[in-house]
Write a protein that binds this DNA or RNA. Structure first.
Length: 423
RNA sequence: GCGGGCGUCGCCAAGUGGUUAAGGCAGCGGCUUGUGGCGCCGCUAUUCGGGGGUUCGAAUCCCCUCGCUCGCCCCA
């Protein structure tokens, strides 16, 4: 029995899965390159203050989910719970905006101290996109379409895109006061959580999952009625653009999202097949974050996708197998040396070669060759050694009876061999 | 932080108080020292997450503890 285990909520990515991840990541990279989005990598640890300011002290994420600790110099540090704050910090610190608007993507581990459950881990991974310095509605549509196309391309169907407008900060402040009044008049009818939130974060009550609160809220004032003309026009135009892009969406007026920095457009992409953690992708506009962190007033929009959730959904749609082209079988000391050098030579020709390490009987080695699902076997034994030959045999032939393809090559004749193996 | 379920080999498991803890998959070896996918044979848990207790006797009952898992809140 092993004495050590991983920490709760921390997950090993095992070989059986790693291929899947690589595929997802390479598809993402393709999409980003085509859209002219560049990668940014920021540290996993930041000073705690960054997240307090950036995400908001009253959010659940900073209130109860942060991995914070003191370093040896007594500074409060935090493992990043999300990517946007760090990216914003880096942009400001490095003056990237002096080069004009930034279109950036990132990926990596995020940390949230929560009870793990299906589709939720303490260390999980996100791929995200941030467009910073762009205020247009068009950029929002573009950003959403990048997420949508990417998810489709990975093979996900039956996704739902929900959008909402949170309005400008001014719109929202007016609405907040109205909503507070309305809720306070019905204080006793609210569930406990919502009662606590009334003064701290009343908007979030709109998102409540409590059934009686939900029912009550049916008649509550709606944020959409408090949007300024400009905000409304923006939101209508966004819908217009999504229609033109043939991206289906639902307007959800209660979609608020748990991070403080959002304004105007907020959106989520969800799936029914994820269990209770339905969100694969979440994002929105955050026009005040950069200035909140000490930078110039700068509009921005972005999203993050949870890779673990994405992979749960993609399931076996992403092939997870790497099949070798050739399996090299050998027996004897001289043969072993030849096998190794042939293996290296063929690999240089970009073939995928698996070399047997066992030096057990030919019978065993063939069994393993079959299991590897390789297309060809190269066999090197005493005969081949003495004749300077290689025996090449076709594997996985369906019918055993009608003669198995088999060729002999001189060891010097590598080019002919490679040609055979490739076709 | 709060609720429910569960912990027997690398994986999936049977077993619910009685001498040696089924079985399947995977793994290893053999039948077959130079030839494969099938088949057959053999090997692989002194021990049932850990600790304590009850009993002549416990994987099976009781207590504690640890871990996993699902859900709530919230989020990716």
């Amino acid at each position: 029995m092993t004495n050590f285990r991983n920490l709760r909520g921390m997950v090993d990515l095992l070989p059986a899965q790693s291929r899947c991840w690589q595929k997802v990541e390479s598809i993402a990279l393709e999409h980003f390159s085509r859209a002219g989005i560049q990668e940014i990598r920021t540290p996993i640890i930041e000073q705690t203050e960054l997240f307090l300011r950036g995400i908001g002290e009253n959010t659940d994420v900073v209130g109860k989910e942060m991995y914070s600790f003191e370093d040896r110099g007594g500074r409060s540090c935090t493992l990043r719970p999300e990517g946007t704050a760090s990216v914003a910090r880096s942009i400001v610190q490095n003056g990237l905006l002096n080069n004009g608007p930034q279109r950036l993507w990132y990926k990596g581990p995020m940390f949230r101290y929560e009870r793990p459950q299906a589709g939720r881990q303490r260390q999980f991974h996100q791929i995200g996109v941030e467009f910073v310095g762009l205020a247009s509605v068009m950029s929002e549509a573009e950003v959403i379409s990048i997420a949508w196309d990417f998810l489709k391309d990975v093979g996900l169907n039956e996704l739902t895109l929900e959008i909402n407008s949170l309005g400008s900060n001014e719109d929202r402040n007016v609405f907040k006061e109205k909503l507070k009044d309305w809720l306070n008049q019905r204080f006793d009818l609210l569930d406990e959580d919502s009662q606590k939130r009334i003064n701290v974060n009343p908007l979030r009550i709109l998102d409540s999952k409590n059934s009686s609160t939900k029912e009550l809220l049916f008649h509550a004032p709606s944020l959409s009625d408090f949007l300024s003309k400009e905000s409304k026009t923006r939101f209508d135009y966004l819908q217009d653009l999504l229609n033109k892009l043939n991206i289906p969406y639902k307007v959800n007026n209660n979609l608020v999202r748990g991070l403080d920095y959002y304004s105007h457009t907020a959106f989520e992409i969800t799936s029914d097949y994820l269990g209770s953690q339905a969100t694969v992708c979440g994002g929105g506009r955050y026009d005040s974050l950069i200035s909140d962190l000490g930078g110039p007033r700068t509009p921005a929009i972005g999203w993050a996708i949870g890779i673990e959730r994405l992979i749960i959904l993609a399931g076996d749609k992403i092939s997870n197998s790497k099949v070798p082209d050739v399996y090299v079988i050998h027996r004897g000391e001289k043969a072993e040396q030849i096998a190794l050098s042939i293996t290296c030579q063929l690999r240089s020709a970009n073939l995928i070669i698996e070399l047997d390490y066992s030096s057990s009987s030919f019978s065993k080695q063939f069994k393993r060759a079959d299991k590897s699902r390789a297309k060809w076997a190269i066999v090197i034994g005493d005969d081949e050694v003495s004749k300077d030959q290689l025996l090449v045999k076709k594997l996985r032939e369906k019918e055993k009876g009608d003669g198995i393809e088999e060729y002999r090559f001189l060891r010097k004749d590598l080019d002919r061999l490679i040609k055979k193996l490739i076709d």
